[in-house]
């Protein structure tokens, strides 16, 4: 009996180490839910600002240009709040799981996300500069989806499913000009809440 216990302990430690050494398993589901809530709040604020039907192709160009700085401001606030919440909650979970927050796995995760994210970010700046406002929402969804797909190899593979969903939604958004804000709210709001909830139930507790 003594040996059996020892072997079972060995197996448990092997299993845990193989996972902890290769994947960053401290991502917080709760952070995903909150990021979704921030995104929905931001989208509601943007909608209030535009004060026009969802179809913003019909918005007078001058009106759009005058509110553009505010829209960018809202987007930045949502982004920063989501990142801060994500880092804080992930830090807490990493502590609990005994995984370093700035270790080999989290570095690989961030590095692999960074390339599509930076590419997408620069593309969006160029689109804004050149006046292709309608392409900003689909581009942000598609490149965020690509970043998540890349990240999925270094954390829970559920992240890949979220990534693919964002990419599909981004392509749909490209086909439906004028519904960018609505579909953006679904992608960054609703999908994050659903995904965060699933992750919370599966891994956080």
């Amino acid at each position: 009996m003594e040996e059996k216990k020892e072997i079972q302990d060995d197996i448990a430690s092997i299993r845990s180490l193989m996972e902890r050494s290769s994947k960053f398993i401290s991502l917080s589901g709760l952070a995903g839910i909150l990021a979704g809530v921030y995104a929905l709040t931001g989208a509601a604020a943007a909608f209030y600002l535009i004060r026009e039907p969802l179809n913003y192709q019909q918005i007078p160009f001058l009106h759009l240009v005058s509110i553009l700085p505010y829209l960018i401001g809202i987007a930045l606030v949502v982004l920063i709040a989501s990142l801060a919440t994500g880092v804080l909650l992930t830090y807490r979970k990493a502590k609990r799981k005994g995984q370093p927050i700035w270790g080999k796995t989290s570095r690989e995760l961030l590095f692999n996300m960074a390339i599509p994210l930076v590419t997408g970010g620069l593309l969006i700046l160029i689109l804004l500069y050149r006046g292709y406002f309608g392409l900003v929402a689909p581009a942000s969804l598609i490149f965020y989806g690509l970043a998540l797909l890349a990240a999925g190899n270094f954390t829970f593979s559920d992240v890949k499913i979220l990534g693919i969903s964002e990419i599909i939604l981004g392509l749909i958004t490209t086909c439906l000009p004028g519904y960018g804000l609505l579909l953006w709210a679904i992608g960054f709001g609703v999908l994050h809440i659903v995904y965060g909830w699933v992750m919370y139930i599966k891994y956080d507790r």
Partner: peptide, 20 residues
């Protein structure tokens, strides 16, 4: 434990291994 980490990953460095 060392062996499980090295089987799951292509390479692992000394400091990460020590931390883990």
């Amino acid at each position: 434990q060392i062996m499980s980490v090295l089987v799951a990953n292509q390479r692992y460095d000394f400091n990460s291994l020590k931390e883990l």
